[in-house]
Design a protein around this nucleic acid. Structure first.
Lengths: 152, 152
DNA sequence: ACTCTCCGTGGACGCCATCGACCTGAGCCT
DNA sequence: AGGCTCAGGTCGATGGCGTCCACGGAGAGT
């Protein structure tokens, strides 16, 4: 993980479809060298994948909610995690410090679907209670913060 | 936005570096047709960009926090938004229903940096108070939920 | 029926991805 | 010091891909 790797990561975080040739020009190496470096970043797990960033409303996911979950005392967090993992609406899942053990970001199409999701969550073994906050609008999301040296 | 567009979006959400040729094979069109469709999805704003999904710890961003912000009565939300937007640590920003007008997801390297961020936030005009919850671990994040027809 | 438009196909051409062979410098052992 | 070894780079070649263009068919409107 040297400065060139950081630059590559930065470049790919801002545009994952850059060609190896273009990456090579940006960092001052040859295309095969960049190809090998990116391959290593992928297989070492630094780069987990490449995602298109899609306007959620356009694909029928206009409702965003953040849901805190309080666990039953004595509940098994791992079992709960498995129950949460199978719910596709839960896009993100954080294990938190505080009363609420988990915080979920969920995305659904309608308020009715959100209601169903909350009901399902409250029925899940180990869940003592949930607290839902609805996002009225998303100002921005997953903005990549530059981390490398300032653009080489 | 027909079924083929949805498939393309799904494919690109799970792997943004698929070639047009490969996309074409998956959806049963020719490469130029796919090229044009994806171009339209981009220029119409359905596809906002392509991001590499990077392990945050690997780039020195090991601390994730969620911060709720209560606004001063009479504060101008737009001015506040501009103040928030310039803070690179704030990866996501939602305008919420409830007492806390904004919910931020911030990522920093150390607890000390988080402290600085919180201090800065509390000094920002229009901010009445903040409430910070620290994520002990991220179980998963930005998992794309399939939305199209089941894989054609 | 004619035509306009949209959206696709097929062909062509230059660039890119990717492989293999070779080069160079750092570190280390004898 | 000399030389081995390995990591990590460049260079060159080739097959596939991206992308431009001209062309064609289906459906709607007049």
């Amino acid at each position: 993980m040297d400065a060139i790797d950081l630059s590559l990561v930065d470049l790919l975080r801002s545009n994952a479809r850059l060609s190896y040739a273009e990456l090579a020009r940006q960092v001052g190496l040859s295309a095969p060298a960049v190809h090998e470096r990116v391959g290593k970043l992928e297989s070492s797990g630094v780069v987990r994948g490449y995602r298109a960033d899609v306007e959620p409303e356009a694909i029928g996911l206009g409702v965003t909610a953040l849901i805190g979950i309080v666990e039953d005392s004595g509940a098994d967090s791992d079992d709960m995690l498995e129950s949460l993992r199978v719910l596709p609406e839960i896009e993100s899942c954080y294990f938190m410090a505080g009363v609420e053990s988990f915080l979920l970001k969920a995305r659904v199409g309608t308020i009715a679907e959100l209601e169903q999701l909350i009901v399902r969550l409250n029925r899940t073994p180990g869940v003592a209670s949930t607290r839902t906050a609805i996002a009225l609008s998303t100002k921005w999301e997953n903005r990549p913060q530059p981390v490398g040296p300032s653009p080489a």
